[in-house]
Amino acid sequence: MTLELRNLRKAWPGAGQPTIPGLDLAVAAGSLTVLLGPSGSGKTTVMKLIAGHLAPDSGEVILKGRTLTGLPPERRGVAMVFQDPLLFPHLTLAGNVGFGLKMRGEPAARIEAEVAAMLARVQLAGLGARRPDQLSGGQQQRAALARALVLRPDLLLLDEPLASLDAGLRDEMRALIRGLQRETGVTTLMVTHDQSEAVVMADRIALLLDGQLAQAAAPAEILRRPETEAVARFFGGVNFLDGVVEGAGFRWGPVRLALDRPGPPGPARLTIRPEAVLLHPGPGQLAAKVRGVTLLGTQSRVELALAGEPLTALLQPAAAEALRPGDTVAVTLPPAALWRLPG
């Protein structure tokens, strides 16, 4: 593990609950971990605690075996990119990117070479003499990234680096960050509130809800095997089936479902991702009634009633086109997609 947070606590005077009630988190060397959570969940506070702009009430931040607690920001080997580019307006682009190297006292010739190489990597080659207000929003954000990466930090912190960009630029920047991170192998912790962004970019997602770590896992794992209903709901889970596990099956009202991993018998709650629910035109495993169809853009949401219980499916719009409220359709709930929530 490169970065470890051990029981990190930070409370604010006046607020009833501690913003960070005690956080444990590990980030593997060379990985891109996304700290995901709704706004107000304390993500930025965690970043500032790691970067040293805030002091924790208790707990430790350990980077490469070194305890950072008490060190000033500049001696932590942590570079942070803020939500806004925050380029220094009085310096040129090259001056901004070379800022950290200059602070370290590197020789000018070396700074110039490193800056030129870094600018080329973020597609800003040749723009070094420009001033920040002569750069577009996307260019500014790439410059902010370059300014941190050129220091080859032990840890790169990215605080919502895409939030200030338009939708079009966001995809480009997303690919650039992911590409540069793989290329340089810099251990990276990124904060976002956007679950789709987290799923696309992360090696590992740490979901923060109310200052607590709700689950930390690879994206596919956290999507398919959420540890709590709250985690499932955060990632757009809407299907929750209350019933009883009996042997290798699950009794849900009048319906019996097959399970891959049933676990011990007794009352249980299952979840299935809406895109895993399969609809067939002909007769199938189960019969359900269509209650409504909504076109969402690239997908269509189909509201179903299965033996009186609500169930939601996401389909390709073409596949949902023919469906009308009141139609009866055949539904399959694949055993591998049914996940029993622990506890």
Partner: peptide, 18 residues
Amino acid sequence: LGPDLGPVARSLGATRWQ
């Protein structure tokens, strides 16, 4: 100027004086 320029500089390795 906002409160963040100082912290940005610090996290790029500048001391308080720098």
